[in-house]
Simulated scan of single mutants.
Amino acid sequence: MSVADQAAGLRQWAGTQHAPSPRHGEDVDDARACRTLVVVGLPGLSPYPTQRVLDLLDHWAAQGRRWVGSSAQWRVAPVEITSPDLPVLFAQQSRWALWVDSDPNAFRRAFRQLTQLKDREGPTRLLAVHSPDMPRKGLLENLQQAAWSCLGIELLVMVK
């Protein structure tokens, strides 16, 4: 996948990420806090890994990525790849992400998660969420290329 294709895909995806306008009598903050990001691959289902995703969203917002807004506008929903609720979530949720760690087994784990999503007819476009200091070159780029060439899954990687 070329850089131009990735950028166009990311712009298209970001263009769909608008919060609805508040309804009459509804608090503006409540209306904006309705974006759900379903994340697979988080290490454990405790609040701390969820906070890592929210911190990354804030990091991207601070870098000028307007589509993020504030992390307060997002609800991060961690889900296990083995959850029996996945088919329902596939139908209901449009924003999906894959957590990518930086340890020596990270590629294997992340690619396995993507393979299982493919086997379960899951989303074909996911946002890579990871530590803010992880470089694009190396693990993220290799995972992105393998996801596309082997599985037909577009893994969106934010460039530093």
Rank of each mutant, 00 (worst) to 15 (best):
M1F: 08
S2H: 09
V3N: 15
L10V: 09
L10Y: 04
Q12K: 11
A14L: 05
H18R: 08
A19F: 01
P22N: 09
R23T: 11
E26M: 07
A33K: 05
A33Q: 10
R35W: 04
R35N: 12
R35D: 06
T36G: 15
T36H: 13
V38R: 15
V39L: 07
V40E: 04
L42R: 12
L45M: 14
P47M: 03
T50V: 05
R52S: 15
V53R: 15
L56K: 10
H59E: 07
A62R: 10
Q63F: 00
Q63L: 08
G64W: 00
G64E: 02
R65H: 06
S70H: 06
S71Q: 06
S71P: 03
Q73N: 13
W74A: 14
W74K: 12
V76H: 11
T82F: 06
L86R: 03
P87C: 13
V88N: 15
A91F: 03
A91N: 15
Q93K: 14
Q93F: 04
S94D: 06
W96K: 09
A97F: 00
A97P: 06
A97K: 01
A97C: 10
N105D: 15
A110Y: 07
R112V: 09
R112P: 05
R112E: 10
Q113H: 13
Q113I: 00
Q116G: 04
R120T: 06
R120W: 00
E121G: 10
E121M: 10
P123K: 00
T124P: 07
T124D: 13
S131C: 05
S131Y: 01
M134S: 14
P135S: 04
K137H: 10
G138D: 06
L140V: 04
A146D: 08
W148S: 09
W148F: 14
C150H: 10
L151P: 12
G152I: 01
I153L: 09
E154W: 03
V159R: 15
V159A: 14
